[in-house]
């Protein structure tokens, strides 16, 4: 198995993974989405809300704000406080804004300097003259198995890289016209793909060719993988945590299998 990174920043990653099978690549994808845990606002106590939105709607908006850090926090169910809530499993944030003003995610004052909104400029609600929003939000650890707000990996996807081949081309250039991505080039009497990463395997070039010269199939062993992070952790962390979780579960399975002899 081979990995080649095309792009790796905190918020975005794209890499080619080759010499493996779709099932494995898809396990990474699913593990990234469902196994990686993050902090998110889970409970909100409203002390004053005279804004035009109901408490419930504001709480939902607050929950969707990605929060950074908090690696060492435990989830409520695994904490020694038995779900009562303590410094190991929850972070308190307060918000107090008086209108006229727009409340932004940066207005949340967190008790833990590490666990803060990943983006400060998320508008929460616009307050008018005389309106006030005063609340305490409790952030907890969770995974997307329980709620999508805990999901850090966004638009996580992979596709097969194309195997493009041409025989007996007559140079009509129909395929060049047909490709919606504009990646087919006709040069020196033959056609080739200029950028195989862009190919969507749509097969329009195959259909456009009257002489049936082109064949495009997805390479069963080579994939291009894409993911984005919502800012709660870096893409490198997303990837390593998900692979660790996969390895742990594969290890567990191995011990079960051994028990059966």
């Amino acid at each position: 198995m081979d990995l080649e990174f095309l792009e790796l920043t905190d918020r975005r990653a794209r890499f080619i993974i080759s010499g493996t099978a779709p099932a494995f690549v898809n396990s990474i994808r699913r593990s990234m989405m469902a196994d990686v845990r993050a902090m998110s606002i889970d409970d909100v106590n409203f002390y004053n809300n005279t804004s035009v939105l109901f408490d419930e709607m504001l709480a939902l908006r607050l929950g969707l704000i990605p929060l950074t850090g908090g690696k060492h926090y435990l989830s409520r169910s695994e904490c020694s406080c038995n779900g009562e809530g303590c410094f190991q499993c929850q972070v308190s944030m307060t918000l107090n804004v008086q209108g006229p003003a727009t409340v932004y995610s940066r207005d949340l004052a967190s008790a833990d300097a590490e666990v803060v909104p990943a983006d400060g400029n998320i508008p929460i609600i616009k307050l008018f003259e005389g309106q006030q929003l005063l609340l305490e939000a409790i952030a907890r650890k969770g995974s997307a198995k329980n709620h999508a707000k805990f999901q850090s990996a966004i638009a996580t996807s992979y596709k097969h890289l194309p195997k493009f081949s041409v025989q007996e081309c007559n140079g009509c250039k129909e395929c060049v016209e047909a490709c919606p991505k504009g990646i087919i080039r006709y040069e020196n009497g033959s056609v080739h793909i200029a950028d195989e990463l862009e190919c969507t395997l749509c097969n329009l070039c195959v259909e456009a060719c009257d002489t049936h010269a082109i064949s495009v199939i997805g390479d069963p062993q080579r994939f291009v993988f894409y993911t984005e992070s919502d800012g709660s952790m870096s893409c490198a962390d997303l990837l390593t945590i998900s692979v660790e979780s996969l390895m742990n579960r594969a290890g567990e399975l191995a011990t079960y299998l051994e028990a059966f002899g």
């Binding site: 969707l64 983006d119 508008p123 966004i154 984005e228």
Partner: peptide, 19 residues
């Protein structure tokens, strides 16, 4: 108010709203 995230993919699009 602009939804915090994209309904489909979950990207935080609201941070671009003001601009």
């Amino acid at each position: 108010m602009i939804p915090v995230r994209c309904f489909t993919c979950g990207a935080v699009i609201s941070k671009h709203w003001d601009q």
